[in-house]
């Protein structure tokens, strides 16, 4: 921490007009981590691709070509200038399908984590703040859910509910909240003993307001980190489900189901498996690097 103090002082002597800002401090720490910056950059590009192709699909602009256009004379062709990532068993361009799939793959991750974080924060804060009999009961429930082999659970539920876009996201989300619940509870347990919380309690603020307005914002950093890492996990899970045939269903292209269709032709058309897999790997890697970078920057902040 002395190191930080020194950096701040020298900065201030150069620019006396700029006072210390925790945000600037955070960004300075974050920028030092090259891998995290790489992750953030890749995610930015991926989001742009997802957004652009969403717009394209709304206005039916076929760039570089229509992802649903089948070309039966060009089935299972290897990478070429016309089709950089080759074509699939119906002669569709793999690159175009992957570009359109970006949005869905990212969306699955974000929505699933949204669900997981909401449930986790709610259960964690209720258990942490109210204590007494509520806390052991909820934590025992968390233990039970944690014991299940998640993937098998998700597979079973999705198979029973019929796999579609929303079911997949919600089920992934509903199994991923236990970690969040645990650390939110721990944070709240420590924050609720602080003097400022005792003070607002003394003036008679409502419990809901105390939790959501005064306690939770102070536990935001670890929630953000776990959300980022959670997106990585959710994308992997969706890909695994798609691969077994229970993910987002074709013809809507996702990286997972392009891969799943490609495995039937694995020995004849390696490009159907290689490229979507690399896309998943790169995206998940970026989320993981970005999340770890956030964690480092938060914990090193003065």
């Amino acid at each position: 921490m002395t190191e930080n103090a020194l950096i701040n002082e020298s900065d201030m002597s150069e620019q006396p007009s700029r006072p210390y800002s925790p945000y600037r401090d955070f960004f300075r720490q974050f920028r030092k981590n090259k891998l995290a910056v790489f992750g953030a950059g890749t995610l930015l590009i991926l989001s742009l691709v997802a957004f652009l192709f969403w717009i394209f699909s709304i206005f039916e602009v076929h760039f570089p070509c229509d992802p649903t256009a089948t070309e039966l004379v060009a089935q299972l062709q290897g990478p070429s200038r016309q089709h950089p990532f080759g074509t699939d068993q119906l002669g569709r361009d793999v690159l175009a399908r992957m570009a359109h799939g970006t949005r869905i793959s990212l969306l699955v991750g974000f929505v699933a984590v949204g669900v997981a974080i909401t449930v986790g924060v709610l259960i964690g804060s209720i258990a942490g703040y109210f204590g007494r009999w509520v806390d052991p009961l909820l934590m025992r429930f968390v233990d039970v859910v944690m014991c299940f082999p998640t993937f098998f659970l998700i597979l079973t539920v999705v198979a029973l509910l019929k796999p579609n876009f929303w079911n997949v996201m919600i089920v992934i989300g509903l199994t991923g909240w236990t970690g969040t619940a645990r650390f939110v509870r721990a944070e709240i347990l420590s924050i609720k003993e602080r003097d400022y919380v005792k003070a607002i309690e003394a003036v008679g603020a409502k419990r809901r307001k105390i939790i959501f307005k005064h306690i939770l914002p102070n536990a935001l950093a670890p929630v953000l980190v776990s959300a980022t890492l959670g997106v990585a996990g959710a994308i992997l899970t969706e890909a695994g489900l798609s691969f077994l045939g229970f993910g987002v269903q074709p013809p809507r292209p996702t990286w997972g189901n392009i891969l799943a269709e490609g495995r039937l032709y694995i020995f004849d058309a390696w490009w159907l498996t290689l490229f979507p897999g690399l896309a998943i790997l790169l995206t998940v890697l970026s989320f993981n690097l970005f999340g770890e970078g956030l964690r480092d920057a938060f914990s090193r902040r003065a």
């Binding site: 890909a239 695994g240 691969f243 897999g277 998940v284 890697l285």
Partner: peptide
């Protein structure tokens, strides 16, 4: 290690 954590195992 990050690569390993991010690897879809079926792939």
């Amino acid at each position: 290690a990050f690569l390993g954590i991010s690897m879809p195992s079926f792939w």
